[in-house]
């Protein structure tokens, strides 16, 4: 590779871009109160928010897998009328501001919402401002990531393996569980991690749909926001640091699959 004589008009913005990305992280690390860190980490509020975050993002990932993998399979393997439209609709939550997603969820699943009314009347289930609501909000935002990743993996996998399975007497369902899933397992895993990371960082839809109640709906990003608002900068830094560590750990785990340039 040629490294010498990089033109200045390229080098300068490239360097600035890198600094722009790294400086805030450095700021976070610089302002971390290392001496009081262990004590702050042990604060019940922090532990509670972290527990809730890990729980809800994991549940959201499970929900996304259960709904998203079959959806991705339908998009990749079954040609039905309106498939392109469905694919486009699935990506809407991806580009929609999460706050708008939260409002939309309220209107659909709120106590007086489209489906919420029915859920409430029939099963006595109310989702907004509950931990389940957090899971719903996170899933809504994270599901497109999983569907897109898994659909890509399915399209990349040779569907003739599925034909080979059929000629060996395998039903479509058995083929899905015994051939398709193992073949795209790496893609599903990558999609699930991406989905989990998105759910972990979810803020807008969660606070709109589920509110900000410590121990019930206050996940880490919400706790960061509230701590900051109350003027406790150090507390916010500590919470942020935890999220940063978790994010970097995810990146490290995924680096081979996602970050290696082809």
């Amino acid at each position: 590779m040629r490294t010498a004589r990089v033109p200045v008009p390229l080098l300068l913005p490239a360097g600035l871009g890198l600094i722009f990305l790294l400086l805030p992280l450095a700021g976070l690390l610089a302002r971390t109160p290392w001496s009081t860190l262990p004590a702050r980490l042990a604060e019940p509020r922090v532990v509670e928010a972290l527990r809730l975050s890990l729980l809800t993002s994991t549940l959201a990932t499970v929900l996304c897998l259960v709904l998203g993998v079959p959806l991705a399979w339908m998009l990749a393997r079954v040609s039905f009328p309106g498939r392109r439209l469905v694919r486009a609709l699935i990506t809407v939550p991806l580009v929609l501001p999460p706050v708008v997603g939260g409002i939309a969820l309220l209107l659909a699943l709120g106590r007086r919402g489209l489906a919420g009314q029915w859920l409430d009347a029939t099963f006595g289930i109310t989702l907004p401002f509950t931990t389940a609501g957090v899971v719903i909000a996170e899933s809504f935002v994270a599901l497109p990531f999983l569907v897109i990743a898994v659909e890509g993996a399915l399209r990349g996998a040779d569907s003739r393996f599925e034909e080979a399975a059929a000629t060996l007497g395998s039903t479509r369902w058995t083929t899905f569980t015994h051939v398709t899933l193992p073949l795209v397992a790496p893609g599903i895993a990558a999609g699930a991690v991406l989905c989990w990371a998105r759910a972990l960082g979810e803020f807008g839809a969660t606070i709109t749909f589920a509110g900000n109640y410590p121990g019930i709906t206050q996940t880490m990003p919400l706790a960061v926001y509230q701590t900051m608002e109350s003027g406790d900068l150090e507390g916010a830094v500590v919470l942020s640091l935890i999220l940063l560590v978790v994010s970097v750990a995810i990146l490290a785990g995924l680096r081979d699959r996602w970050l290696t340039a082809p």
Binding site: D158, F161, T167, P182
Partner: peptide, 20 residues
């Protein structure tokens, strides 16, 4: 009949052995 219900065996050109 769908393929899975036919009493057939197929050797594909590139074999299509399940890689996993």
């Amino acid at each position: 009949d769908p393929p899975e219900r036919r009493p057939i065996g197929v050797v594909f050109q590139d074999y299509l052995l399940f890689p996993h």
